[in-house]
Computed example of a mutant assay.
Amino acid sequence: MKIAIEGCMHGDLDNVYATLLHLQQVERTKIDLLICCGDFQAVRNEKDLESLSVPPKYRSMNSFWKYYSGEKVAPFPTIFIGGNHEASNYLWELYYGGWAAPHIYFLGFAGVVKFGSVRIGGLSGIYKSNHYHLGHFERPPYNDRDIKSVYHVREYDVHKLMQIEEPVDIFVSHDWPVGITDHGNWKRLVRDKPYFKEEIQDRTLGSKPAAELLEKLKPPYWFSAHLHCKFAALVQHGDEGTFLYFFLFFL
Rank of each mutant, 00 (worst) to 15 (best):
D192C: 00
E71W: 13
A74S: 15
K208Q: 12
Y127S: 01
L13Q: 04
Y95N: 05
G125Y: 03
S124E: 07
V168P: 04
M162P: 01
V190K: 03
K114F: 05
F247K: 10
R203S: 01
G111K: 05
I3H: 07
H10Y: 14
G11L: 03
T242L: 11
G108S: 09
A211V: 07
Y245G: 03
S117T: 12
V26K: 12
P102N: 12
W176V: 13
H103V: 00
Y142A: 03
S69A: 14
L49E: 11
D192Y: 08
H174F: 15
P55A: 10
P56W: 08
G241R: 10
T204A: 07
A42P: 06
F64K: 07
Y245L: 08
K57H: 13
I104H: 07
F250T: 14
L91H: 10
F249A: 06
A211K: 12
E93Y: 04
V172P: 05
E138M: 13
K160S: 05
D12E: 13
D182I: 01
D48S: 10
I5L: 11
D182M: 11
D14I: 02
H85R: 13
G116E: 12
G7L: 06
Q41T: 10
R44A: 10
K187A: 11
V16N: 06
R44S: 05
Y245T: 12
F64M: 05
A87T: 06
G7R: 09
E166P: 00
D157H: 01
E50Q: 14
G70H: 06
C8K: 06
F171Y: 04
S124L: 04
S117Y: 05
Q236I: 04
A232D: 14
D48E: 10
Y68Q: 13
I3A: 05
W99E: 15
P56Y: 07
K218N: 07
W186A: 12
Y90D: 02
Y90S: 00
I200D: 04
G179R: 14
E212G: 09
N185L: 05
P219I: 01
H22F: 12
G116M: 04
D14S: 02
H228L: 08
L20Q: 06
F246I: 05
L34R: 05
H22K: 15
V43T: 09
K208G: 00
R188W: 09
L234E: 13
I31T: 11
Y195P: 00
E138D: 12
H237D: 12
Y68F: 15
F196M: 09
P209F: 01
L94A: 07
C36W: 00
S51G: 09
Y68S: 14
H133K: 08
L161W: 04
V150P: 04
G135H: 06
D192F: 05
D157C: 00
D144A: 15
Y67T: 08
I35F: 08
I3M: 06
L251I: 03
G11P: 06
K193F: 04
K128R: 13
G122E: 00
A210T: 13
F243M: 11
K114S: 14
P140C: 08
K160D: 01
D239E: 14
Y127R: 03
K30N: 10
D146Y: 09
H136L: 15
W99A: 14
E198C: 01
Y17A: 06
N45W: 03
S129G: 00
W222F: 14
Y90L: 10
V235G: 00
D48T: 04
